[in-house]
C-alpha cells in the first residue's frame, strides 16, 4: 500500500464509518472549562515569569554549540591549566645530588666518631654494636617432631 496515495479509493465500508456522527461535546462543559482556563491564565500572570532564565540558558547552550568559538575557548583554557601545572612541578630527581646525607650515612659517621673517641679514651664504645647477621641455619639443626602414639 502506498501511504501517500490520497487518491486510493475509499471503500463503501469506510464511507459508512465516516458518516457516523460522534456525539457532541456536553454544552455545560464549555463554561466550566473556559472559566477554569481563564483562572489558570490569571494565576500564571501573577507568578513571576522565568522565561528570561530559560532564554539565558538557551543562549549559553547556543554559544557552546558554536564549534570554533566554544571549542577553541575550551582548548585554550585547558592549555593554560596544563602550562600552570607544568610550571608548578617539583625539582627533577637529578637535582637532588646535593641533598643532606641519609640517616644510615649519618649513623655510620656517628658510630665511627664514637669508636674513635673510645679508642682515644681506651674504653668500650658507649653504643651497642650492630647485631651480627644471623649465620645460615644448618639443615637438621632443629629437633625433629616425632608424633607419639
Amino acid at each position: 500500500m502506498n501511504p501517500s496515495s490520497k487518491a486510493e479509493p475509499e471503500s463503501a465500508f469506510e464511507s459508512r464509518l465516516r458518516r457516523q456522527v460522534i456525539r457532541p461535546v456536553p454544552v455545560q462543559w464549555r463554561e466550566a472549562i473556559l472559566q477554569e482556563a481563564a483562572a489558570a491564565a490569571h494565576r500564571e500572570g501573577e507568578t513571576p515569569s522565568n522565561q528570561h532564565v530559560v532564554r539565558r540558558s538557551v543562549n549559553l547552550l547556543r554559544w557552546f554549540s558554536l564549534p570554533r568559538l566554544g571549542w577553541l575557548g575550551l582548548g585554550a583554557t585547558w592549555g593554560l591549566i596544563l602550562a600552570l601545572h607544568i610550571a608548578g612541578q617539583p625539582e627533577p630527581l637529578s637535582d637532588l645530588a646535593g641533598r643532606p646525607p641519609a640517616a644510615s650515612e649519618a649513623w655510620a659517621a656517628w658510630t665511627q666518631n664514637q669508636r674513635e673517641l673510645a679508642r682515644l679514651l681506651d674504653t668500650e664504645p658507649a653504643f651497642a654494636p650492630p647485631p651480627a647477621s644471623r649465620p645460615p641455619r644448618q639443615q637438621g639443626s632443629l629437633p625433629r617432631f616425632v608424633p607419639t602414639a
Binding site: 461535546v25 462543559w29 466550566a32 472549562i33 473556559l34 477554569e36 482556563a37 481563564a38 489558570a40 491564565a41 494565576r43 500564571e44
Partner: peptide, 15 residues
C-alpha cells in the same frame, strides 16, 4: 473532560 480542560488551561496559561 479532564484532558479537554487541560488543553485549554495550557493554552490560557501559555498563549
Amino acid at each position: 473532560r479532564d484532558l479537554l480542560q487541560e488543553v485549554f488551561t495550557r493554552l490560557a496559561g501559555n498563549p
